[in-house]
């Protein structure tokens, strides 16, 4: 496998909530325009490193991080980093679809509007492009001004993806994006992820090993906050180096 450029990196990252250490000395380099899956038993601290990458953990009281979280060769926890700009570059999709109580159009236009874009023609283009990229355009183009809540769960999640895309991110973090969806909607999201990796770096937390095996290029196995193993997905699932990974994959725990 050809090593592509590294987009995201963890260098000896530890994360604490108060006195509790949730992430322990994690180091990994994540290449760009690939899908990297983070798997592990529930409670193993999968979401925490993901959320550290756009600093969504900042809002949790008592959070402390050591080591370096790198995006484009820059430590995002260094002094003087503009968190707002960081989050425009590093988008996030959450476990439960969380559209705003606004219209479909307004949901997608939200991010660009924050950045000061007001012209209707420009917004129209961004909204259409984002919805197309999220494979939702054909389903909603006739009712852009209906409430985001009128959509099905799977559509809502794709709306949330479109909303993130509208900001023009380079990295998309996905926190169990399909866990609240049925199999058909899950399949659509997975298909969408494969399309998105042509232009984006995707990091997805999942508790669904089949999903990780189906869509990801690389897989990180987290256990008790430690990175037990990180490698090309095929190797993780066929020839894991670590006995704990083997146990987890073959269903002996978790």
């Amino acid at each position: 496998m050809v090593e592509s450029k590294h987009k995201v990196g963890f260098r000896d990252v530890s994360i604490f909530y108060g006195r509790l250490q949730v992430v322990k000395h994690v180091s990994a380099e994540i290449p760009e325009k690939e899908i990297t899956a983070i798997i592990g038993p529930s409670g193993s601290g999968k979401s925490t490193p993901l959320r550290s990458l756009n600093r969504m953990n900042d809002h949790i009281g008592g959070m402390r991080i050591t080591g370096e979280a790198i995006i484009d060769d820059q430590n995002i926890y260094a002094a003087g980093v503009d968190v707002v700009r960081l989050r425009r570059k590093v988008g996030m999709v959450f476990q439960r679809p969380n559209p705003f109580p606004k219209s479909i159009y307004e949901n997608v236009a939200y991010g660009p509007k924050l950045q000061g874009l007001r012209t209707k023609a420009d917004l129209d283009i961004i909204v259409e492009n984002s919805l197309r990229q999220a494979a939702l355009w054909d389903e909603v183009k006739d009712r852009l001004h209906a409430s985001g809540f009128d959509l099905s769960g799977g559509q809502q999640q794709r709306l949330c993806i479109a909303r993130s895309l509208a900001v023009g991110p380079e990295v998309l973090l996905m926190d169990e994006p399909a866990s609240a969806l049925d199999p058909a909607a899950t399949a659509k999201i997975e298909e969408l992820m494969l399309m998105l990796k042509r232009t984006l770096t995707l990091i997805v937390v999942t508790h669904n090993m089949q999903q990780a095996a189906r869509v990801s290029d690389r897989t990180a196995f987290l256990l008790g906050g430690e990175l037990a193993e990180y490698d090309v997905t095929r190797k993780i699932f066929t020839a894991p180096q670590d006995k704990r990974t083997d146990d987890y994959i073959s269903g002996k725990m978790g």
Binding site: R87, G91, N98, F100, P101, L114, R163
Partner: peptide
Amino acid sequence: SFREASLALGA
């Protein structure tokens, strides 16, 4: 979750 979504969009 509304707050989170908005912050994650760079608000």
